[in-house]
Design a protein around this nucleic acid. Sequence first.
DNA 1: GTGGTCTAGACCACT
DNA 2: GTGGTCTAGACCACA
Lengths: 115, 115, 115, 115
Amino acid sequence: MSSDSRPVYLRLRDAIAAAILDGRYRPGDPLPSVRAFALDQGANPLTVAKAYQSFQDEGLIVVRRGVGMFVAPGAAERLLASERRSFLDEQWPRIAATIRRLDFDLADLIQHQHG
Amino acid sequence: MSSDSRPVYLRLRDAIAAAILDGRYRPGDPLPSVRAFALDQGANPLTVAKAYQSFQDEGLIVVRRGVGMFVAPGAAERLLASERRSFLDEQWPRIAATIRRLDFDLADLIQHQHG
Amino acid sequence: MSSDSRPVYLRLRDAIAAAILDGRYRPGDPLPSVRAFALDQGANPLTVAKAYQSFQDEGLIVVRRGVGMFVAPGAAERLLASERRSFLDEQWPRIAATIRRLDFDLADLIQHQHG
Amino acid sequence: MSSDSRPVYLRLRDAIAAAILDGRYRPGDPLPSVRAFALDQGANPLTVAKAYQSFQDEGLIVVRRGVGMFVAPGAAERLLASERRSFLDEQWPRIAATIRRLDFDLADLIQHQHG
DNA sequence: GTGGTCTAGACCACT
DNA sequence: GTGGTCTAGACCACA
């Protein structure tokens, strides 16, 4: 239920982000077309477009009209930096508070991963 | 923004859960009436009722018709247990994956947990 | 939850009806005063009065003002007759439909009637 | 009168449950949209949503956001099991006691159905 | 289009 | 007084 409740476009975005961070998509590489990726993921093309759009807004992918979409130079580095910052600022404080409230031990959670 | 975007009824639920976990509401204690709590929180009575409802479904509060709602025996213990379980099962796996993906270590996180 | 959800005044009514049917309260016998019965049952006197009222409406108990309330002559017989009739007409059809729908047989039910 | 006094959302719930049990709605089938069903039944969309909600909580229907609601795999089997259990545990004991108290014969009632 | 949430205001049964 | 239900009408995010 919790993974189902995340918007599809965010899950698509994460999948692309992971590929960029992992180096599977490198600067200059073409991304799959909206239609192809939509077919591949069983998603609506509009939903895929929404995921791509968020990367364009951040300048991490560039569009060459009539040709396709390509990973921008330095995409991995900038993506990593911005995700690290937003995680620490926006998500981690609440997560840390929950961990404290539920009396978990952070080191223990991280070492054993529990998942 | 992230706390603002959470549904009101869930934030009310969390406030009540915190009070039960803290021992401010103890078994047998009456909860504020739907109307009183709604006024207090500037929310609609239906919204408050929705928050209360979720506790009823889990048997953490009992309703005495025409009288009021009361904290059930063992509510704090069961609440803590269910929250710990749901955190480990549903939230932590994704969080741990993110931590790995963004290459954080324990020191990074400890430093920022007091945000 | 299901027994809790029945109105208190109906549960009180059933308790009195059972006593009349069983012969514990016989025609001419005094019923406990509203106040005494309320104390005994941990209920609100108004709630007890509501239960008593329903019997008065059916003429099964008679009030002698300033003295008390008494079981009417023929109360058990009339009560039995009216309850049997209302059970067959109003409750059993729905119950039978449920039994059919859930595909229970006589043995299933006999096994569980001593719960 | 007794069916009239049941909350609308429970009657809607029963109608959907019957359709699932009958196989009119099969796993993977879409349920009518909240708005469409509300129009169809002359009810408020919120009331329909409340009926649907109870099935979601039990995992009998799954929600695809922005798309619709669908019957979950195994819904009929789980629904039948849970209804049988709740009938035997919560309703039947009281019904059996009534049958005994009113001096009916269970086998007779079931054979002749009386309704 | 879909479901999710919220409000304002009403009526009901129960204690 | 209490909680439970229902309506009408609104706004939102998502696909």
